[in-house]
Simulated scan of single mutants.
Amino acid sequence: MTNARLGEALRLLGLDAAAARIYLTLLDLAPAPLGAVAAASGVGEPDFPAAYQVLVDTGLASAPRADGDVVAPVPPAAGLELLARHRAAEVEESRIAVSGAFDSFRRQRLAAYNDDLVEVVTGDAVGPRIRRAWASAREQIRQFESPPYVPLTDPTRDALATLARGVTQRVVYSRESLEYPGRLQEVIEPCVRAGEQARVLPSVPVKLVIIDDAYALVSLSIEEADVHNTMLVVQPCGLFSALVALFEQSWRNAVPFQGRTTRPGGLPPADRRLLWLLAGGAADEVIARELGISRRTLYRRLQTLMARLGAANRFQMALQAQRHGWL
């Protein structure tokens, strides 16, 4: 790494120019007497002691007892952690300050700028805006998920990265989502295994993503009109509150896609997937296709599951499976 790039890295961690120059000099000369480091660094006498003390305080350099003492850089792990945490705290304070200033502006002058409460995003800007929204989530994402889909590069990666950051994801899938070729295996199941809370309804009222309590993305995809490239970004307002209430009501009415516990002995993954699809209302041919089996084999497996659960029909089987934590 060049001195310029290393100096920029130190600046981003919160060190001022003088401390960064001294640290670079230490890397070139150390171990060396403190006076020699001061002379080679080019930092003037009035500023050098305080700048070097910054390196000592942050755990990047050894502490001298006198000017003639030999000094050197020390292993930086602890110091870098301290700097990174301090920098993160400063960024968070700045984020809160800017957000609070804008909220104050919106409260005081909302009437003059009410057009900004709903933004229309179209065309090629839709995909990047969706990805930025997922990356910005801090606490939770609530979503209605259904075809048609905006073409994105590896959307599963974005969802898994968000879950890995500790963001709660609650998704209500439509039956069409489960039936869409490859969607269950390539997108839904990996996210559920990673901790996503998923439920299913026969249909969802709108394609929707709610980011924290900050804003909502509403797709205007209309399959019949072949419109797939328009989206609304809704800021906190009466419409936003209505979208949140719509999601929560639908969430309460939806069928859980996977329970948190399983019956002792559990189920083979294929049988669990069969029950998920069945609970979601998927047709027999769709279930058979997703499982890679014939309809005849599907019927045999359904009969086996019904017998295992003591169910006389599919409805009773779904109820019993949910009671046992298999859904």
Rank of each mutant, 00 (worst) to 15 (best):
A216S: 03
A214G: 12
V206M: 05
A225V: 12
P128M: 03
L217W: 09
V171S: 05
P181T: 08
E145W: 11
R157P: 14
E186T: 10
T168D: 14
A133H: 09
Y180V: 15
V120F: 08
L217C: 01
V206R: 05
Q143F: 12
L232H: 01
P202D: 08
I222V: 12
C191D: 13
Y149L: 05
A194V: 07
V126G: 01
L217T: 06
H228N: 15
L239D: 10
P190E: 07
P181F: 05
D124N: 07
P205K: 04
F240Q: 04
T153G: 15
L243P: 00
I210R: 00
I141F: 05
E196I: 14
F247D: 07
E196L: 15
E224H: 13
Q169M: 13
V187A: 13
A135I: 05
A245P: 04
F247W: 01
G123H: 01
S203F: 10
E176M: 14
S241C: 11
D213Q: 11
T122K: 13
P128D: 04
A137Y: 00
A161T: 09
P148V: 05
Y173V: 01
S219L: 00
A214I: 10
L184E: 12
V118C: 00
L201G: 04
L152S: 05
L201M: 04
D116H: 15
S146L: 05
L201T: 03
V206L: 06
R131M: 13
S203R: 13
R193K: 13
I211R: 01
I141A: 10
R175A: 15
A137M: 00
L117K: 02
L117W: 08
P236R: 00
G123A: 03
R165L: 01
G195N: 09
L243C: 02
Q169C: 10
V171C: 08
R199G: 10
S136V: 02
S203I: 04
R157N: 13
E186R: 15
S174E: 04
P205S: 03
H228W: 10
S241Q: 13
L217G: 00
T230S: 11
V121M: 00
L163C: 06
R175M: 10
V209L: 09
P190W: 05
H228P: 14
A135C: 09
G195T: 09
E176R: 14
L217Y: 07
S174C: 02
W134D: 06
V171Y: 05
L160M: 08
R132H: 12
L184M: 13
A137V: 01
I130S: 08
V192M: 07
A133P: 04
S219Q: 03
L178N: 07
M231R: 02
A161I: 12
G123T: 03
T230A: 08
S241D: 07
P155C: 08
D124S: 11
S221H: 01
L184G: 14
V172C: 01
A194M: 07
L201W: 03
V218D: 03
V120R: 08
A133V: 04
A135H: 07
Y173F: 05
G182C: 06
N229V: 11
V200Q: 11
